[in-house]
Design a protein around this nucleic acid. Sequence first.
DNA 1: ATCGTAATATGATTTCAATCATATGTTGCC
DNA 2: GGCAACATATGATTGAAATCATATTACGAT
Lengths: 188, 188
Amino acid sequence: MLPNPYDHIPSSALRPISGAVGDTVFHQGDPTHGLYVVQTGRVHLERVDPDGERFIIHRAQAGTSFAEASVFSEVYHCDAVIVEAGALIRIDKASVLAAFADPAFARAYGRQAAQQIQAQRQMLEIVGIRRAEDRVMAGLIAGLLEGSIVEFAARLQLSHEAIYRALRKFVQDGRVMNPSRGIYHLHP
Amino acid sequence: MLPNPYDHIPSSALRPISGAVGDTVFHQGDPTHGLYVVQTGRVHLERVDPDGERFIIHRAQAGTSFAEASVFSEVYHCDAVIVEAGALIRIDKASVLAAFADPAFARAYGRQAAQQIQAQRQMLEIVGIRRAEDRVMAGLIAGLLEGSIVEFAARLQLSHEAIYRALRKFVQDGRVMNPSRGIYHLHP
DNA sequence: ATCGTAATATGATTTCAATCATATGTTGCC
DNA sequence: GGCAACATATGATTGAAATCATATTACGAT
């Protein structure tokens, strides 16, 4: 996220929003306003099915944006619900569209989008690997083991126990080094 | 993909490529050339780990593009291998970057990217659902059951047997209609 | 028409990851 | 220093989905 595309948008177009847990930033079917950048807190995008059952489309973390697609469409079929209090910035739809006339914004946006797409593709391939061991190895190769094993497990959508077992196996097989408790990395 | 961003690129910048199964379009670490559009056939993007084991980062289908991120970086850490013979188009890196000066291209690219990101996010949430029944229901709600059950199963990363069982359950519970063999849809 | 292939559909069995249980190590805090 | 909360780590059990097996049906090619 080095060259943040939103640096190229005039600050007059940025609308700060603060919200409490449970607040709905926008509703499914609302005429859309623009895109949102999460500065702090967490937001879930949820879709409500005909039976009233709701399921989560996306979990937006601090430092990420959401509802980008709404800039290009009349309606957006999600509720955005604040699940951890924080601060958001809303950028007007028209302002985003106007910003595309600035090649610097356009390229920054394109770069960010392309990287995100690539990262997501990789995640889809990785979580599609059935065997826990293979998935963990793919995660290691992809450099996803940053931070704790618990976070790594969440990223890979495996239980942390499954991660420990796979790592132990790799260490026994000499494929992974475990220089100290909680530290694992691939043999060079 | 209605307004295809690549319609805005001068045809002089489009380089047709044809390849046979097993051909490598580009190698990991090659200086990058641009992005590729798959017209027919299929291409895999693979990464080779230190042990020589290769794992698939992405499967590019006909009608999709790949290596978009390479436009913004010096190197791209994948091999692109043709797994089904077909025709590709390569668009020069410089041509893509230049095209961002055209607001029509920039917006079309932004729209396409935003939609793709949204779709991928949704897929990540869906394949993250553990229970087969819940995953199938989420897939139905998301409108992913287009075409055959086998394709649906592949999209959801479940065995087709698991799909049939879940669908049968839903039909028994009256949540899904099965007007004829192979046809399933949600009750309104 | 019929042959072959693939999709649809279910039942039986196996596998493997989740879950449960438990212990130790680590970190921050009053 | 001692306690609480959490991460690390493994073993035992369970459960759910994959796999295997087997029909039936659809569809195109010859």
